[in-house]
């Protein structure tokens, strides 16, 4: 392996940033890592050089550029995104869209060699007229009800423009689908952990998951090697939603869409933890991505959708045996 140079990771405290550090240091303690986040993460490895940067601040772009120049970073991994949407639309937008813009501008100023941005296949959006397998060329239509998805779409369009202005930097975008595994937690995992799972009556779309190890493997490979372009990072195989819930032995609460949407929307805005309205459309229509391009670049996934789900279910001890 040729030395990748100094790797700078934004959003060190996020799951992806934290796990990437762990994996890189396990691979070789020689790798030099610079971390940036709003506050110092708990139990940070002493080998990581940490800088406090708040991406929601207006001058954070020059601050990031300073850090990148000072540390002579060659690779920037941008993972400073919310792992789940919050009710604070404004801060979400400042952090995800404007924060990413700041990071991009800093990368341009510091002339980094590679920029890796994590994204999501949720950006394709659940639409009744989606083909069964969405390729990377498919337009990002998102979901009108989900501000978080809209923010990330803006990030991708800003990035596309940025790429044409900075042709010397190799840009890698990793779009992963819903991550499941023993340690990963977000609002999707919490939704599926409930004892009684509300579901739209009469709909049973095919779902696709990726195991956290496969997702991290793709991110690690993209960090260490040159893989410019956009990649879907997904597990192999698909499963209907009803099968997924049955594997976990869940009680299903079938509800008509208007009632469920209304019920889901208000508590989520009051931050009492329920997924927002847009979420249920992802359980209504198809948004399965074609992972072939990602598998060609990063290798076949170790876990299928079923296995990723099983590993999640078994670690949470969710299965009720009847």
């Amino acid at each position: 392996m040729n030395s990748p140079g100094v790797i700078a990771i934004t959003g060190l405290g996020s799951y992806l940033g934290r796990s990437l550090v762990k994996r890189l240091l396990r691979r070789s303690p020689e790798i030099r890592i610079v971390g940036m986040d709003r506050r110092r993460p708990f139990r940070l490895d002493p080998l990581v050089r940490f800088h406090t940067v708040d991406l929601t601040e207006p001058t954070s772009d020059s601050r990031v550029a300073e850090v990148l120049a000072e540390e002579r970073a060659e690779v920037v991994v941008h993972t400073a995104f919310r792992s789940e949407p919050t009710a604070d639309f404004e801060t979400d937008h400042e952090l995800e869209t404007i924060g990413s813009l700041h990071v991009m501008n800093a990368c341009a100023a510091a002339k980094v060699k590679r920029l890796i941005v994590t994204s999501s296949t949720m950006l394709y959006g659940p639409w009744p007229d989606n083909p069964n397998f969405l390729t990377e060329q498919h337009p990002l239509r998102g979901h009108p009800g989900s501000h978080s998805v809209s923010n990330r779409i803006q990030v991708e369009s800003l990035l596309a423009k940025w790429r044409s202005r900075n042709p010397d930097t190799e840009v890698t975008v990793l779009r992963n689908c819903w991550i499941f595994g023993p340690t990963y937690t977000d609002h999707v995992a919490r939704y599926f952990s409930r004892p009684l799972v509300p579901k739209l009556i009469g709909y049973d779309p095919l779902m696709q998951f990726v195991h956290e190890d496969d997702c991290m493997h793709a991110l690690e490979t993209a960090t260490l090697h040159q893989h410019p372009g956009v990649f879907n990072v997904v597990g192999s195989g698909v499963l209907p939603l009803s099968t997924i819930l049955r594997i976990a032995g869940k009680r299903i609460l079938p509800m008509p869409p208007p009632i469920l949407y209304r019920m889901a929307n208000h508590p989520s805005q009051g931050q009492t933890g329920d997924p927002p309205e847009g979420f249920y459309d992802y359980l209504r229509y198809l948004w399965v991505a074609d992972g072939q391009r990602g598998w060609d670049a990063f290798g076949e996934p170790v876990y299928t959708t079923r296995e990723a789900w099983m590993s999640f279910v078994s670690t949470r001890r969710m299965r009720r045996y009847r």
Binding site: D129, P131, N132, F133, T135
Partner: peptide, 23 residues
């Protein structure tokens, strides 16, 4: 039709596929 509630789960299982060139 392939996204019609109650019809969709059964049609897909019986071999129906949404009509589009990609598929």
């Amino acid at each position: 039709l392939i996204t019609l509630p109650f019809v969709q789960p059964y049609l897909a299982r019986l071999g129906g596929v949404r009509a589009c060139r990609e598929n």
